[in-house]
Design a protein around this nucleic acid. Sequence first.
DNA 1: TTGACAAGTGACCTTTCGTTCACTATAATG
DNA 2: CATTATAGTGAACGAAAGGTCACTTGTCAA
Lengths: 200, 200
Amino acid sequence: MAKDTKERILEAALEMFSQNGYAGTNVRELSASLGLVKSGVYKHYESKEAIWNALLDQMIAYYADHFGSADHLPPVPDSLEALTRLTMRMANVTVHDEKIAMTRKVLTLEQFRDPRARELATKHFLTGLTDMFTRIFTGMTEKGLLKKDDPAMLAFAYTAPISALIHLCDREPEKTDEAMAQIEAFSRHFIKVYGEAGHE
Amino acid sequence: MAKDTKERILEAALEMFSQNGYAGTNVRELSASLGLVKSGVYKHYESKEAIWNALLDQMIAYYADHFGSADHLPPVPDSLEALTRLTMRMANVTVHDEKIAMTRKVLTLEQFRDPRARELATKHFLTGLTDMFTRIFTGMTEKGLLKKDDPAMLAFAYTAPISALIHLCDREPEKTDEAMAQIEAFSRHFIKVYGEAGHE
DNA sequence: TTGACAAGTGACCTTTCGTTCACTATAATG
DNA sequence: CATTATAGTGAACGAAAGGTCACTTGTCAA
């Protein structure tokens, strides 16, 4: 029945680690949030560190599954307006999906302590988005939607500001709406600058 | 003689908090790193939290002194090349100055726990740089160096990618050189796009 | 010289932490 | 039906945490 307790522990750990960090989380509270007593957790994981490692394993696997392979690339937008729509859809998901948001927070808090967290943090915050949009912009340039330029540089210039605003949402959730509007404004500004005339 | 022990405690706290976070730091180690025993620390601060608050006070005051007022604005560059030089000078200072780098790390680690850290983090990571370059770009546009555009949007588009690379240096110091080169490349790309022709 | 005070020590206290273990309840298995 | 594995309990343990206190030492002013 409670066969998925092991899984529920990871969910609770993600929640607590993302709020208080690894060092700031204690096994008592973690167990209590699942309605069991702390020794019960040790039936599923041999230590607090084992929970952390299992959680990281899961986050790494999840990232590889959902963002790592070229299969899951969104279709290349066939208009400049579609680029903004795609961007807003992705931004909304990544900010409002609690699991993804908590993953970002955990990586933020543990990036200086755990080498695997560090590596995954760079993917989440920088290279992942850049790589993805490098492909998208390559496709859009081939379609004649964007002026000819280095797609990797364009992707970096496009995704880094958006990433900064996503971090702002994590830090100050009450500014989420404002940040989303800024992302949209930035996307349109980007299009005005780099979009090929005739496709506005 | 050891009148500045109170100050040295804050320095040690900055170092330890920036590496292990507040929760991951203990007063024993902190004291030991100063060559004294933990009860000695309590002669200067009444609690671990008091140390944290004093450190935050200092960081907030430092920021207000050095980046908060319009007095300390760097002079508006009088050429596009000078913008890149200014940018590289600032990036090098901010990455290589250990105190500033540790401050960023602390704010990164404690932004979700302490409201004042959260506020200062947003200044350090986002609004501070944007505001500063908004003024710079306004001046450069008036000088005819930049194409007419919304200076705040330009500043955001310019500083956010640079900020992302500075975070990368904090996270993966071995990539510092590469990141610096990327900052310079990005700056030149930005100038190519937004610079007024005739000033390249 | 003395007295007061600030800085630092070391022993100690309390609480909380992560972890262990003997035990119980339950449900599947032979 | 007997058995065995699994999930969960509650008490207990040792280590480490933050913090207190009586005491020493050195400095300086009266």
